[in-house]
Design a protein around this nucleic acid. Sequence first.
DNA 1: AGCGATTGTCTCTTACAAGAGACGCATGTA
DNA 2: TACATGCGTCTCTTGTAAGAGACAATCGCT
Lengths: 262, 262
Amino acid sequence: MQDGNALAVSADEKTTASREKGLNRVLEILDFLHTTQRAIGIGDLAKGVNAPRSTTYTLVRSLVDAGLLEMAGDGNRVYFGKKLYLYGMDYVRGNDLLRRGRQEVDHLSRETGETSELCMLQSGRYTIVHSSPGTRPFRISSATGLQIPLPWTASGRLLLAGLERAEVEAMVSEDDLVLPDGRKLRLDDFIDDIAKAGVTGYCVTSGLVDAYTKCLAVPVFSAPGKVEATMCLVVPIDTSDERTGSLIGLLRDRAARLSIGG
Amino acid sequence: MQDGNALAVSADEKTTASREKGLNRVLEILDFLHTTQRAIGIGDLAKGVNAPRSTTYTLVRSLVDAGLLEMAGDGNRVYFGKKLYLYGMDYVRGNDLLRRGRQEVDHLSRETGETSELCMLQSGRYTIVHSSPGTRPFRISSATGLQIPLPWTASGRLLLAGLERAEVEAMVSEDDLVLPDGRKLRLDDFIDDIAKAGVTGYCVTSGLVDAYTKCLAVPVFSAPGKVEATMCLVVPIDTSDERTGSLIGLLRDRAARLSIGG
DNA sequence: AGCGATTGTCTCTTACAAGAGACGCATGTA
DNA sequence: TACATGCGTCTCTTGTAAGAGACAATCGCT
């Protein structure tokens, strides 16, 4: 195989051409359901993950039998099953940080009235692990489990603190640097932001994902220097500097409680 | 011992003798982690699910890469990963009954001070899907996701309402009829209980799982006649009939809210 | 040091699962 | 009625993943 020709490589990031391992198919199925966020017919599922129909039927049957998936009400659609819920709860139980982080986030949003979130890296992607909506009439919704490009967020800048430049580059694609409104961030600026955020111990971004909000984030440490998660507040972009400052203070206080040897 | 030829067969109800499909191995791994409820070394995991070491290593690697499992802190143990948590949250979001049931259970335990639980059938087994501890000093602990033989519980009697005798027999093994203290229930009695519970619309069991508690359960319907879940309260066995009655009234009221066309 | 147990990686073989595709049965719609 | 489309099941072939086992590295124990 010659690596000289970039064409062949770029054409197929998704070459499920030949025989694919069953387990991989399953992982694709789960990811696909996670993105659709709703029950889906098996035929469509097969199309969605680009797998043969017969294979998909067999795999889905296994998964349904195992309880990882369930047939949805009408009868021929599938979605996540109870067992995944149970495993998820096991994860929470075994994970102090997540358990306490969830509580802290809920508490924080009640206390401040702002939307509050707990964020983590999930296989190299920024993920909202838990969020609690604020009490504002126009609320900024952002679903749990949503995956957003790292450069779009304040948390992203904190989560990458301490990484080598090469590692950051590996995690951030060209597309990730393009904001929803079309503006393009420079990679160097992003890396500078990461360094700055690492020093100051918090990060604020304004009007990145949308024009109406800013995002205040602080790191949560699992070991000295190791950023395991971030807590953040999503507030209206016209929030006064004074209030912004006091909110950041509050955040840092709460994050410190969660951190281990921060 | 019996005659020689039965030896080979009777020895292993778990004949993972020959080649096993990778997906099945994975499902066993997940189930195993669910029962251990803690991170475990890969070697031990291989022993635990009775799989070859080399296979286990490859599978675990896939699962860790996919985020379904995570390496635990020390480095060579694995447990459930973030992705399973996210999938679990997806399940909750897509499942009105569970979402509202959880709230109701939390509310109920705060209101009554008793331990409250939401239970469902999970691939033919009784499962505590969510539980909220009461405020009593000696609290009856029962972990979420715990699987208990159906005949041991009040909920079990309600969940099987409307099933044919044969179906019930298929779901209940001989062992399931033996209580923790060694007493043995008669299958016929259990089936009678199920019928009775179906008619009265609630079920109370006393001193079945242990000698100190009784369990009050009511059905939650997903369609007329179809029991999807149960809500139950675990109370001290000496709770007065009067209080028991009023608690059941409360339960029925709340379960009715959850039910659809019950 | 010596010894046994465990851990992570690697190679090679062959049993078997992934996949192509046909089939019958429901739909819908001209 | 004929035709198209989608569903669920089944059969057969072959590419390949599960597994046996060897290997070096590391740990714990005397």
